[in-house]
Amino acid sequence: MSERHRVDARGAMCPGPLMEMIAAIKLAAVGDEIEVLSSDRGTVDDIPEWVAKVGHRMVESVALDGYWSVVVKKAK
């Protein structure tokens, strides 16, 4: 059964939200979703760019109160 994992990377300076997501996706099973919370506006562009290169799937990207929620599905 697929799970959703949350990575709270708000305020993360180093290594940053995308690196945190890459680390989390390696531990996840195919079909799982990773939700990254980020206070860095760049995440909204960085994560979809990487997801497209690797072949995972973007689920959603939502602006919340001072931060963003980006959800990715592990596709392979």
Binding site: L18, M19, D46
Partner: peptide
């Protein structure tokens, strides 16, 4: 490097 720049910290 895994992401789109040379280090996780943008200033670095």
């Amino acid at each position: 490097y895994p992401i789109g720049r040379l280090h996780g910290l943008e200033p670095v």
